[in-house]
Design a protein around this nucleic acid. Structure first.
Lengths: 210, 210, 210, 210
DNA sequence: TATGAATGAGACTTCATTCAT
DNA sequence: CATGAATGAAGTCTCATTCAT
């Protein structure tokens, strides 16, 4: 797996970039369905190809190993998260911005429950190199919230130490994820909106008071 | 896998109950090491036997399938959690009791990081029946905290709705687990004690205010 | 194993029907050699693949389990029997037709001694479902002779009760098979032709007299 | 396996001859049940010991290998057959004696269907040496009938060539066995007595006429 | 580009047999 | 004599990956 500072490249024998993009999206969609149903290891490449709508031979034209499929999936998720959270940032440093960011993040997770769950249960199957890359992305996600919190902190809205900033950002990320992999228990007691409200409430109050 | 209301039984061809207990603990210990290192699927039964200190044949005298090993491991964890949380319950309904419970739970997780991580990443590999049993245990764990919170609520220390009780209990459980599977990121910024303090602080403040 | 009223289907991942037919014939041939030499249980799937001329992986592209190999073998035999006995039916109801049928059946067995012996010693290793199917075929074989006898009976050449018709048909089938699994003893005393003549003689005389 | 002209000896580490006899009968009985149910290969030595009523360790005090169990079983059957057919021989050379012998043989088989079926389906699993011994016994059984037929022939009751004598004896033995391994089909159409009568009738008529 | 038959390393599991108690 | 825990060779089957068409 070739490496670049920015992104691990999954090599192909196919040249047409658009086709690559298209096929890979098919692969990711198939992978989400299958990995959710049976996990990374129990899902076979043959099945992935079949669900994706082409042959096993074709699959291997767009991916070098099964692990690549998982990597593609993880990468895809972070891409989505970034896009979603990047779409509204006014860098105002107000509590409202923070709230909006949290809300968007939670809603995103709710709309991609399966993908998130897979990522958290299967990323350990990545190679050291790929895992490292994915965990970095994860930290970037935390950093996104850390930034927003920092803005608030600088404007005096919050009063948090370095450590508290980090822990608070983590707190948000984790609670969001928990909606994905504990949905089976949570959604019997509340909707995503109620969940968001509760988290926001508790969290902000716990934070702001300082 | 025979079933009883209380516990799924893993059958053996060995008769000496003490020996069974002993060997199974060896198996669990070996499994924790290996599952942590390579995950459930990449770890082979032969390796498990080897690390446990006996032959593959012997392993299968104490376990019917590889899945049984995972089940044994999960069951073991819940056993520990219950013992730990059951060891100090004065049922006082005070905030101090709540704090102590949370602390014990977090410390337990810290001392069994690997086991907890495995459970959360691999339990999906259990059979439907075994998974159901494990998830039930998980809910029992949540219920433990729910009870303590309820006690506090009844004594007027807290003022929480049914839903809030459940969400708060979940909150605790999740944050505790997050220390296990995000330790790699967290422990670079704080110790377990600092983490506990932070969680307690934020959480309780977010809760109590009501 | 999918089921249809007519035939149990052994499923494949290979799509080319002609190739399937070809490979399966290779498998059956290999199985006859090996099952004869060491029996169903002592013959390994790896050996079967090797003798058939391909890898173990390929074997499992054309067969789902080892049992399938045995089933394929049994099915093949009945196919042959039917073809052979169906090739000359003038439905005349004469003794000559009966004699010809018996002769063809005995000659067929002589040319497939190994396959027949295997079938009678190993069919018990089939699953209940497959065994049932095979025993049904066996009864169909008996019925073939029962029909011929019935024709003779209706034309007054023979005078047999229902029960006698059945027993007589069985008699033929069994004596034929005995040439297969007792060849080791019989062929030291007579050729297949002598055996046929003796059986015909004794049997017909015992029957016709009535 | 030590060899003597008369009988293959299965060695033991136990000395008490009576106990040996007793335990072996237990083993044979257990083997009949289990080999019938699952065949020689699928039945495990552990099961045999369990059904026999003792431990696996004890089993191996009275038998050196699993194959020995099968051998013991086969040997036992021939012992029974000989005893049964030896109990009434007046060497009269009459048709009635022949008829009585046939009847006794058929009745014996009917009372030991399972054992006979096992012998014919599993004896192939014996070592070459043991198989040879068992097949010899089989030929002795044929010879028993050959003798009786010869007596009749000498007295002029029958008029058969050497070859015919052999084939006729075989005929009897085979038809008897067929009651064992085709009982599933036959007993729906007739009782053992009807079967005997039919066989006697057809066979004798086919024979005597000469 | 797309296909799918072929490959074979390697996984899980069984079970006959031994031997210390 | 009896026991049963331990052993490990060997068997069946899966599935990621390749490559000729």
């Amino acid at each position: 797996m070739a490496k670049s500072k920015e992104k691990l490249q999954v090599e192909t024998s196919v040249k047409d970039a658009q086709l690559i993009e298209f096929r890979r999206q098919q692969i990711i969609n198939a992978a989400i369905v299958l990995f959710k149903e049976k996990g990374f290891h129990r899902a076979t490449t043959r099945e992935i190809a079949k669900v994706a709508g082409f042959s096993i031979g074709t699959l291997y034209e767009y991916v070098r190993t099964k692990e690549d499929v998982l990597y593609l999936l993880c990468d895809h998720i972070y891409h989505e998260v970034k896009q979603r959270l990047a779409s509204f940032p006014q860098r105002s440093g107000t509590i409202d911005e923070l709230k909006e960011a949290i809300k968007q993040y939670f809603l995103l997770i709710d709309s991609m429950t399966d993908a998130f769950t897979i990522m958290y249960q299967e990323s350990k199957s990545l190679s050291k190199e790929a895992l490292h890359y994915v965990l970095n992305k994860e930290m970037e996600m935390v950093a996104l919230f850390q930034n927003i919190l920092e803005n608030c902190s600088e404007l005096g809205v919050l009063r948090l130490s370095e450590q508290e900033l980090f822990l608070a950002a983590n707190h948000i990320v984790i609670q969001g994820q928990s909606w994905a992999f504990r949905k089976w228990a949570l959604h019997r007691h509340c909707t995503i909106d109620e969940f968001i409200e509760y988290q926001m409430d508790t969290f902000l109050f716990g934070i702001i008071r300082k």
